[in-house]
Design a protein around this nucleic acid. Structure first.
Lengths: 107, 107
DNA sequence: TTTGTATATCGCAATATTACGATAATAAAA
DNA sequence: TTTTATTATCGTAATATTGCGATATACAAA
């Protein structure tokens, strides 16, 4: 065991869980905050500011890219990672719709 | 390795990540949806409706309780799990504040 | 009391995640 | 061309998560 049984859940449930899961790591939260509020979008800057190894940061960036939250642009020999603001808003709406439709109780 | 280095992140980052992480599993999403929209709050009903073993559902319920999202009431020999709506709203606000303060880009 | 029902917890196996050193790939600079 | 800097990927060790059978616990019903 150890495998999440995705086949017994519907598409929306798996999608929601996947989004929450990717956001569920402090390094990825920190990356998003740095890019957004501290104007550092260069991979190497993030490595220095966050304090994880370069390979580790690169891996986290890849995961954030996998849900479309980040897009990377090549800038000479460096990579500039930016938040895809359209996707960001879309995601926020999606999570809010989950919260709003799940706001009732049976007892 | 394999340990998340929580000590290099601040309290808010770790808290946000923890909340997202707990929500990052389709079974837990399904549990919340069942309780809220399908009026099933009895543990055993969830076991039948979701299709995971009783021990597994019990474990997921425990994790949802750990972030205050569910509260369980004893009802005879059964347990009725309800969403803590105050906590639910608080959490939604907290996640929205993260989304709203991270909505800028450097490039 | 005995039996049956509902839930929690323990222990374990399978799998996933996290982190990082080493190395490859790419492009600018010398 | 050679060197240097930046990032991605591979391989691996450590740890975490998922899922479940077995069992313990608690309560109701017989």
């Amino acid at each position: 065991m150890g495998i999440t049984k995705t086949q017994i859940f519907d598409k929306r449930q798996n999608e929601l869980a996947q989004l929450f899961k990717i956001l569920g790591h402090p390094a990825r939260i920190a990356i998003l905050q740095h890019i957004s509020t501290q104007n550092s979008c260069i991979c190497n800057d993030l490595v220095e500011e966050i304090g994880l190894a370069q390979a580790t940061i690169s891996q986290h960036l890849k995961e954030l890219k996998s849900i479309g939250l980040l897009k990377g642009e090549i800038e000479g020999k460096r990579m500039c990672y930016c938040i895809d603001l359209d996707r960001w808003n879309e995601l926020q709406d999606f999570l809010n719709s989950f919260f709003n439709t799940t706001k009732h109780n049976c007892c």
